[in-house]
Design a protein around this nucleic acid. Structure first.
Lengths: 130, 130
DNA sequence: CCTTGACCCTCCAGCGACTGGAAGCCCTAT
DNA sequence: ATAGGGCTTCCAGTCGCTGGAGGGTCAAGG
């Protein structure tokens, strides 16, 4: 398979796939013309990476996950720990965003949004007082 | 005021303040020795920026907000529109993270987390099937 | 046999919003 | 005179790609 085919099948842009090779996540073969040649195992890894990235794992997490995946003597506890730590980070981020959302929502609600200049949003930003 | 004082009062690192000057958000004066000299108005702007950034506005949004703040002929509608668009983006991000959180939570829950190798997290990543 | 167009290659630069570090000047206190 | 802290500039790195330039390769059609 050439890069275009794998890109299609894995749902990742060719650029991203080249990048993943650059940073050593995959190691496709090379044809005599210099073209990358992808085995099924490469496609499989790319799909794995795509799903892990879609769950928000960092590239380094993905590297670790791939290694764990390929190591059949792993302990599921190691995977769970990684996933749990990531889950905690996501929950933190959600909480942060929720808090922003709350404040912003109130501000937007309290702003007339007409063509007069008075604006509680700006006065809040200016003074930090609601 | 020197940069250290403003940094303290505005709750922003000196590096960030220098960066904000670099990109033209503020324009402090200069002492004969080359040190930045901050007026109250500079501190005020920095506090404004800090709060806007804490609400997740981008730097470019902040630039616009500052301009609106300084323009007393603005229409509050312009501010409201900006804030509303930002709110929408935040809500999108929250939804995305919630979706990740849901999947991850299920995966973590379903993983034994012992020292056996079987791991539903990895099999999900490998196959895309739950 | 030649051309066209779709692929593929590498390498470099840029995104956003800082942050770390090096190298060096300035100011105050002892 | 020196030690320390604070200030300056400039460059490089972060993360995960993404865009573009400049060029080689391949299969199909005329």
């Amino acid at each position: 398979m050439n890069i275009g085919d794998v890109a299609q099948k894995a749902g990742l842009p060719p650029k991203t796939i080249r990048y993943y090779e650059d940073i050593g996540l995959i190691a496709p073969l090379r044809d005599t013309n210099g073209y990358r040649v992808f085995r099924d195992s490469d496609l499989h890894k790319l799909a794995f990476l795509g799903r892990a990235r879609a769950l928000g794992f960092t590239i380094e997490d993905c590297r670790t996950l791939l290694a764990l995946y390929e190591d059949d003597t792993r302990a599921s506890a190691d995977v769970k720990e990684l996933a749990q730590a990531h889950l905690a980070k996501i929950e933190d981020k959600i909480a942060q965003l929720e808090s922003m959302r709350g404040t912003l929502f109130d501000l937007v609600k309290s702003c007339a949004g007409d063509n007069r200049p008075d604006c509680p949003i700006l006065s809040d930003l200016a003074t930090g007082q609601h």
